[in-house]
Design a binder for these strands. Structure first.
Lengths: 213, 213, 213, 213
DNA sequence: GATGAATGAGTATTCATTCAT
DNA sequence: CATGAATGAATACTCATTCAT
């Protein structure tokens, strides 16, 4: 019946989907979601406006799929199902991993933080995260889960670390200071102009590791 | 008609200007600049769309004036003309001041960080002078100036501090870690839901002061 | 506060609303709802596309309001709250009234019958007519009510008429034949080209009255 | 390859043509011509969009061919070449035949009446010849011919009938009333929901025959 | 023949901005 | 000063149609 030559077609489709998502992501991140026009994306991809609608139901759906794809990848990076216990070396590895992901998916995280800064988006994605657990689209609670997971693991780490040491550090305080420093570094890195920035981010990562390991 | 009323008129005009800017600021911060419609602002102010154009040449101009007004205030807060040397107590005062400003102008800073995160806006609004052409205070690059000023003062502070201490701390490292922690706190505070957040920001400020003073 | 000079403004608005509805109705009836473009309507009205959206939320809403307006008028014509009993003279008056309404609102009825011939519209407007009785928009059950009302009144009329006569007519049969003839006349009249038609509709009305009175 | 298969191929092609036309007809009738999308039709047929364009030059052409196919069939039903004279039994047969055709081709007639009710379509599709250019039966105005033919035959019938009777009926009046009743019945039948309708159409046909035979 | 990815002209709708009152 | 009706450029989205495979 169907001469759909092969399953290569599926591959080609998948490639085009990703092509569109890649360009859209970059434009969304650079100019903002609202300010990016569909035909801009099309032009950057070298395809027609119409084709984008063969792959994505709407501009918003395109955005959601981008977020989805990226967060799913992040999950895999973090191997979320491992034992959840961190040794000192794993702690260092974790921090370097975070920074590596920021670097590799810089554009995505730029977009992601932009979005999180709008009340409605925040509510849509984060606070409404009480969505059914069997959800397959993997957006809303993905974030909450990720944050909770990370906080739990780190909380554990700092508790054990302060127990051993005699410095009388408060584990919660350590955790909070560390978390805040990491967020500060993240934001600074994501939205600095790599060429003109006075910061050497690799060194700052070393600094943080040195300080909190 | 009478000379009196003309003075009062000016006051009324100024009040209305501020009314519009206040509502616009809140809406811009909550929903984003692009997503906020002029008639939304008008409705929230209880005035007509047309009136807004009596006070501001365009939506963009409205945004610029909001940024300008707030940054001018921030400058005054920081008393930019003082000697530029910080004692330990002044350092603590400085941090608390930062947090106080964040608290008092929370909405503005929410908007401000949103804007900073869009490349085009960053280039258009921030680097290319924010001040209106007729202003007399004439800071050509408000933000850059502010950041440089703060960094300078702090840099000085940490240099002197590490000189005194015998810990062998690197002043630049200290400065960077401090700056990053402050930025992390800022972001976390601005975009957390004050009612549901697990963080007690006052305490975190104490923590930071304790750590870096 | 508001210099909305007078309530003349309201009148002007109402006039423009009606202007738009009139032109839209004609175009919808002539070319069909889907085939009529908003900017066609705008051009015919001598206004801009945008203005139409100041008065009507969407093309579909415009259609609904047209139907609504017309059906409401029809209701008034029929004085639906009168006693519901027809004498012979009232019967004749009723038929002439029907024809008069068809004539005066010819364009509307053309549109109306067109719409009724699409399954979805039929279901939307007629079969779903079990909508809450307190409805204020007056569309869905308006039609059903009107039909029921007319059928009831006529049913009554034919029952009484055949009782009196000795011809042994069946009242239901009479009603049905009459109703069908009326519908046939209606359709023929609405969709004939008045200039070229071989039918003289006034005479046919006389014929029907003569036959069924 | 073999000559046999080429004949079979023709059959298969013809079957597929008809398959497409059948589904298209139903969808056109239910949702309207404009509102029916080509890919809807394709999906309903279980074929690709592209294939439809192998059989029909355009959506409009598809419509025209549907109309053409059905009208050609109708012509055959009515045996257009007979003597043109109706006996009483033939008159009854004629009416039952009309109703039978309505029943068998209900969907087509639904579509047909819809089309007739749009001025532009009326002009484009009906008056300007429906037949494909290569057809040999060459009726330039199928509908007009059909209507005229029917009216002629019936006119004759009623003339002769009233001549015989002593009731003093006007043959033209009788014809008109009859024609209108038939049209009313037609419309009522075509656009009623067969399941919920209060009318028993078989009985109404009997009624009409009884009345006008 | 058959497919469905790709195209792009066409259309509804939005919204900053203007201007007569 | 204040209004809100009016404008029209901009933009998301649709869908008939094409064509390489």
């Amino acid at each position: 019946m169907s001469p759909k030559s092969s399953k290569q077609l599926e591959e080609i489709k998948e490639k085009k989907r990703n092509l569109i998502m890649d360009h859209a992501l970059r434009l969304f991140a650079e100019n903002g979601f609202q300010a990016t026009r569909i035909d801009q994306i099309a032009k950057h991809c070298g395809v027609s406006k119409g084709l984008i609608y063969n792959y994505f139901a709407s501009k918003e759906e395109l955005l959601k799929e981008i977020i989805n794809r990226s967060l799913t990848e992040v999950y895999q990076y973090f191997d979320i199902n491992r034992d959840g216990y961190l040794t000192e070396d794993e702690f260092e590895y974790f921090i370097r991993q975070v920074f590596r992901i920021l670097k590799e998916k810089r554009t995505f995280w730029q977009l992601f933080f932009q979005l999180l800064m709008q009340k409605e988006v925040r509510e849509e994605f984060i606070n409404h995260s009480v969505t059914p657990p069997d959800i397959n689209s993997g957006e809303p609670d993905v974030i909450q889960n990720l944050e909770n997971y990370v906080l739990n693991v780190l909380s554990d780490y700092f508790r054990k670390k302060t127990e051993k040491s005699a410095d009388g550090y408060d584990p919660l305080s350590e955790l909070i200071l560390f978390a805040i420093a990491l967020k500060g570094l993240t934001i600074t890195y994501l939205f600095s102009d790599e060429k003109t920035s006075i910061f050497d981010f690799e060194k700052i990562v070393d600094l943080i590791i040195e300080k909190y390991k």
